[in-house]
Lab assay of single mutants.
Amino acid sequence: SEEKKKAKERLERLGASSELARELLDRANGNAEKAERLLRKLL
């Protein structure tokens, strides 16, 4: 979806690899905010 694509791009801008961004979104069930929080914990 367009929303998921935007979320993935945002995670990548924050420093996630394409693969990591995809994994985070999967774990967050597509929830962009939750995926971002997970990423911030990792960085």
Results as ranks from 00 to 15, higher is better:
Ala7Lys: 07
Glu3Tyr: 14
Ser1Pro: 11
Asn29Cys: 11
Lys4Leu: 15
Leu25Ile: 07
Ser1Cys: 09
Glu23Gln: 12
Leu38Glu: 11
Arg37Asp: 13
Lys41Thr: 10
Glu23Val: 12
Ser18Arg: 08
Asp26Thr: 09
Glu2Arg: 07
Glu12Thr: 08
Glu2Ala: 11
Lys5Val: 11
Gly30Thr: 01
Gly15Trp: 04
Arg22Phe: 10
Leu38Phe: 06
Leu24Met: 05
Ala16Gly: 03
Glu33Val: 11
Lys5Trp: 10
Arg10Asp: 05
Leu14Met: 09
Gly30Gln: 05
Leu14Arg: 02
Ser1Phe: 12
Lys4Ile: 14
Ala35Ile: 04
Ala35Tyr: 03
Ala28His: 05
Glu36Pro: 00
Gly15Lys: 03
Arg27His: 07
Ala7His: 06
Leu43Ala: 05
Glu12Ala: 05
Glu9Tyr: 05
Asn31Ser: 07
Arg10Ile: 07
Asn31Trp: 06
Arg22Pro: 00
Lys8Ala: 13
Ser1Gln: 12
Arg37Glu: 15
Lys5Gly: 08
Gly15Glu: 01
Lys5Asp: 13
Lys4Tyr: 15
Ala35Gln: 00
Glu9Ile: 07
Leu11Thr: 00
Arg10Ala: 07
Arg10Met: 08
Ser18Trp: 06
Asp26Ala: 12
Arg37Phe: 11
Ser17Glu: 03
Lys4Thr: 14
Leu11Ser: 00
Lys5Pro: 07
Leu39Asp: 00
Ser17Thr: 12
Arg27Lys: 11
Leu24Lys: 02
Lys8Gln: 15
Ala21Pro: 00
Arg22Val: 14
Arg40Asp: 07
Asn31Pro: 01
Arg10Pro: 02
Arg10His: 09
Ser18Leu: 07
Gly15His: 02
Leu11Asp: 01
Leu39Asn: 00
Asn31Gln: 05
Ala32Pro: 10
Glu23Gly: 03
Glu3Met: 09
Ala21Asp: 00
Leu20His: 02
Leu42Met: 11
Glu2Lys: 08
Leu25Val: 07
Lys41Pro: 05
Arg10Trp: 12
Leu42Asp: 04
Lys8Thr: 15
Ala7Ile: 11
Gly15Gln: 01
Asn29Ile: 03
Leu39Ser: 00
Glu2Gln: 10
Leu24Tyr: 03
Glu9Val: 06
Arg37Trp: 14
Ala28Ser: 08
Ala16Arg: 01
Leu42Gly: 04
Leu42Val: 06
Lys6Ile: 10
Lys4Met: 15
Asn31Ile: 06
Glu19Val: 07
Glu36Ala: 07
Ala35Trp: 02
Gly15Asn: 01
Lys4Trp: 15
Ala21Glu: 01
Gly15Ser: 02
Asp26Cys: 09
Ala7Pro: 04
Ser17Val: 02
Arg22Cys: 15
Glu12Trp: 03
Lys5Tyr: 12
Arg37Cys: 12
Arg10Lys: 09
Lys34Trp: 14
Leu42Lys: 05
Ala28Phe: 15
Leu24Asp: 00
Leu25Asp: 00
Lys41Glu: 15
Leu38Gly: 01
Arg27Phe: 10
Arg10Gly: 05
Leu43Val: 06
Arg22Thr: 14
Ala28Trp: 05
Ala7Trp: 09
Glu23Lys: 10
Gly15Ala: 04
Ser1Gly: 12
Lys6Leu: 13
Asn29Phe: 11
Ala32Arg: 06
Lys34Pro: 00
Lys6Pro: 05
Glu9Asp: 08
Ala32Asp: 04
Lys6Gln: 12
Lys41Asn: 12
Lys6Asn: 10
Leu42Thr: 05
Leu14His: 03
Glu19Met: 07
Arg27Leu: 14
Arg10Phe: 08
Ala16Ser: 02
Asp26His: 12
Lys41Ala: 13
Asn31His: 06
Asn31Val: 06
Glu33His: 11
Leu38Gln: 05
Lys8Gly: 07
Leu38Ile: 08
Glu12Leu: 09
Glu19Pro: 04
Leu25Phe: 05
Asn29Gln: 11
Leu42His: 07
Glu12Cys: 08
Ala32Phe: 15
Ser17Pro: 05
Ala32Ile: 15
Ser18Asp: 10
Glu36Trp: 06
Lys4Gln: 14
Arg22Gly: 11
Ala7Met: 08
Leu42Pro: 01
Leu20Trp: 06
Leu43Phe: 09
Ser18Pro: 15
Asp26Ser: 09
Ala21Ile: 07
Ala16His: 03
Glu12Asp: 01
Ser17Asn: 06
Asp26Trp: 13
Arg37Leu: 14
Arg10Leu: 09
Leu14Gln: 05
Leu42Phe: 11
Leu11Lys: 01
Leu11Cys: 02
Ala7Gly: 08
Leu20Pro: 00
Leu42Gln: 05
Glu2Asn: 10
Lys34Tyr: 15
Gly30Tyr: 08
Leu14Phe: 04
Ala35Val: 02
Arg40Ala: 11
Leu14Thr: 01
Leu43Arg: 06
Lys8Asn: 08
Ala35Lys: 00
Ala21Leu: 05
Leu14Trp: 05
Glu36Tyr: 07
Ala7Glu: 05
Leu39Gly: 00
Leu14Asp: 01
Glu23Trp: 15
Lys4Phe: 15
Leu39Thr: 00
Glu2Leu: 13
Ser18Val: 08
Ser17Phe: 04
Lys8Tyr: 15
Ala32His: 06
Leu11Val: 02
Ser1Ala: 13
Glu33Arg: 13
Leu14Tyr: 04
Leu24Pro: 00
Glu3Gln: 11
Glu36Met: 10
Glu23Pro: 00
Ser17Tyr: 04
Leu39Lys: 01
Leu24Asn: 00
Glu23Ala: 13
Asn29Asp: 11
Leu25Ala: 05
Ala16Leu: 06
Asn31Asp: 15
Arg13Ile: 08
Leu14Asn: 03
Leu24Cys: 07
Leu39Val: 01
Arg40Ser: 08
Leu42Asn: 02
Ala21Ser: 04
Gly30Arg: 02
Arg22Ser: 14
Ala35Leu: 06
Ala35Met: 03
Leu24Thr: 01
Arg37Lys: 11
Arg37Met: 14
Lys4Ala: 14
Leu39Tyr: 09
Asn31Ala: 04
Asn31Lys: 05
Leu11Ala: 00
Gly30Glu: 03
Arg40Trp: 14
Arg27Ala: 12
Arg13Met: 12
Ala28Gly: 02
Glu19Thr: 08
Lys5Glu: 13
Glu9Gln: 12
Leu25Ser: 03
Asn29His: 13
Glu9Ser: 07
Leu20Thr: 04
Lys4Gly: 13
Glu19Cys: 04
